[in-house]
Write a protein that binds this DNA or RNA. Structure first.
Length: 268
DNA sequence: CTCCATGTTTAGAA
DNA sequence: CTTCTAAACATGGA
């Protein structure tokens, strides 16, 4: 489930293992993930070069090549990144494989193929062209407060809008609202100052904790909603059966006891 | 067979 | 302009 914490985990994986090795070969099994860069140009950009740096903006990962070009990866709903040795089998649903001169490979896999592989001259240019908002990690409180002002949308929808705040998706917005004790449909302009501060602190702690857990469900703190976020799941704090609702075409899970509708004295 | 799923884009309505 | 919905993308799992 590639949202910001997952993509940040992939970024760290590449930074730790896949930098500075010469790329001897690249292979694209399904060109459907390509956005605007043709297959031959990707191969040409990669072969004989090395990755020398990484950058992440929202759910987009950028890998810098030693000639200043950048490869762009977006993971869609089912995209993943795996780094493995040449004795290990290629992962299932592999879309692209990059082979290094140390015998290891980096595989981009995707079951549903909704992701993107592309090239860009610079992350800034790419982010601007896509109209992405501020990255949700490392965002400061005044900036967040300023973002909230003047909006009436349901808070969950607002948080998921990549053009405003970049990096949060369906799962992590549920997690953040759960910790903040705010109902997913609460309109942004109906949140009081205390709500907003709790929202900001939850956003920060959820992202920090999730990245620390490498976005791995079983490593998340016990107080997290995520492991219980399914039909029949119960609130990890009070055992109340979780409720579901649909907003912006997505399913939200929430605890009806900790996330009361706005206006009716919420008790987080 | 039907319904659902972590994301994004687009068209259209209110 | 803002907000929200539905549909489309492609595919597997329940």
């Amino acid at each position: 489930m590639p949202e910001l914490p997952d993509v940040e985990t992939y970024r760290r994986l590449v930074t730790r293992h896949a930098l500075r090795q010469v790329i001897v070969r690249s292979s694209i099994r399904d060109a459907g993930v390509l956005d605007r860069t043709p297959v031959p140009r990707i191969h040409r950009a990669l072969r004989g070069r090395r990755f020398v740096g990484t950058h992440r903006h929202g759910k987009y990962l950028f890998l810098r090549l030693n000639d200043d070009g950048w490869m762009v990866l977006h993971f869609g709903m089912t995209g993943r990144l795996r780094y493995y040795g040449n004795r290990e089998p290629e992962p299932q649903f592999t879309i692209m494989v990059i082979s290094f001169d140390n015998g290891h490979q980096l595989a981009y896999t995707s079951r549903r193929k909704l992701g993107i592989v592309d090239m860009t001259d610079a992350p800034r240019i790419y982010v601007k062209r896509r109209g992405l908002g501020i990255d949700a990690l490392g965002l400061d409180e005044p900036t967040f407060m300023a973002l909230l002002t003047g909006h009436r949308a349901a808070v969950k929808n607002f948080l998921m809008d990549q053009h405003r705040l970049s990096g949060l998706g369906n799962v992590y917005t549920d997690e953040i609202l759960f910790h903040a004790g705010i109902h997913p449909k609460a309109p942004v302009d109906k949140l009081n100052q205390a709500d907003r501060r709790r929202l900001f602190r939850s956003l920060r702690s959820v992202l920090d904790n999730s990245i620390r857990a490498q976005a791995h469900v079983i490593r998340l703190p016990r107080t997290f909603l995520l492991p219980h976020r399914h039909k029949g799941g119960r609130c990890p704090r009070c055992g109340t059966p979780l409720k579901r609702l649909t907003t912006a075409g997505r399913t939200a899970y929430y605890c009806p006891r900790h996330q009361r509708p706005w206006g009716s004295s919420a008790t987080p």
